[in-house]
Nucleic acid binder design. Sequence first.
DNA 1: GGTATGCCTTGATAAATATCAAAAGATTCA
DNA 2: TGAATCTTTTGATATTTATCAAGGCATACC
Lengths: 231, 231
Amino acid sequence: MPDSYYPEIRRLDLFASMEDARFRELMRGSYVQNFPPRIELITEGDPSDFMHIVLEGSVELFSSWNGRETSMATLTPVATFILAATIRDAPYLMSARTLDKCRVALVPSQDVRAVFDQDGEFARAIVAELALCYRSVVKNAKDLKLRTSLERLANYLLRQRARAGSDRFELPIEKRRLASRLGMTPENLSRAFKGLRPYGVRVDGNRIELSDPADLAGFAKPNPLIDDPLS
Amino acid sequence: MPDSYYPEIRRLDLFASMEDARFRELMRGSYVQNFPPRIELITEGDPSDFMHIVLEGSVELFSSWNGRETSMATLTPVATFILAATIRDAPYLMSARTLDKCRVALVPSQDVRAVFDQDGEFARAIVAELALCYRSVVKNAKDLKLRTSLERLANYLLRQRARAGSDRFELPIEKRRLASRLGMTPENLSRAFKGLRPYGVRVDGNRIELSDPADLAGFAKPNPLIDDPLS
DNA sequence: GGTATGCCTTGATAAATATCAAAAGATTCA
DNA sequence: TGAATCTTTTGATATTTATCAAGGCATACC
């Protein structure tokens, strides 16, 4: 891997505080690849030979069963994925595909496990990252089980508002993927947007405007234990 | 904590390979408590002062939002819970209550974090445990998003069959809790059991008999990436 | 034993969500 | 530019799931 990528990868919490020698060792065995849109990077069930890092573009994690498919998450730079499978040396539970042109770093799983054994700082960082991922999936499960689809959408919009820091923002993903992420069909997402109109949700293509966020929050009842990505 | 508990706690993967001195250190600061049934051990949102270990009885993890409640998991000895919150020093995402009389060990979170920093073996074990937990929640999310409630029940029954190693077994939890765990109402669970009768599912109170597991599997289409607790 | 309580089941109904079909908008690409 | 393709929306309908109400069954407790 070219040294030029080191700084941005270093910024990840996962690598921020590890010894420089170990970091270089890890990167030496890794490589960076460019992918066109809509390429399946990994397939669920395959052995986890590499930990992946999205450097550019966006990557969708999805899962399939019995001819059905659901979107689990969309990752944007700089983020790692498939860490748990790497750690456990277990098969991938989710597939991943590029949504646009992507640059992805591939770190051999056995190197990750080897450095983990030698570098306490790295081990701590991995634990922190895993615990964060775990908590984020638990929040997602709570969202799915405790809320209707309308409530999930309302809370999603409030989270995007917080992320953008503005009452106007663009949806970062296609609506049909958003529908799948929220556990609904594209048709119902369309109707759900209409259903939120009384709470001041204006939709124009990708552009969203929340004209009365307080009113929307009154309906959505956001909760940090479900909606706050950090807590 | 009395030394007599050490062996059974030691058997947990989490503690199996850590240095004996560290283990004793960790246990010294911990204590064991008995609880009557239906006691709320922890409440979601509270700071995570202790990692918990069920030694006897069963404990339900559940979550609430907006007056609704859902069962997330039921734990039986010997199992830890609330590890991720302990590690991140973050609030509990789930509440826990005893279902019957329980014996629970409480390990101060700061001790867990301190020993984690000093004992590489323990750190490795924590990572393995967290990765396992993470993967189990991902499987649960896939189950919820990709399957209907009838399919979820069918696969649950096949998992219980594998666990029991027999076509006849008893449901380990109350039906209303099972309903909640599977993301449905008690009424619908009752109807779902009826709906599986054509596939050889016989129900008598808690006792289940699968008279044609192959036929049931043909309907349920179990998949290791959702249903295998280890893979 | 009998009452009380809680769990489970059943039936009727309502609400939520999915499916199907078609049209309207975007976007891609030759 | 225009054809082709894909996404989004809309309406009609079907399916799934939840809610409400009532009754049956068990268990716990006086």
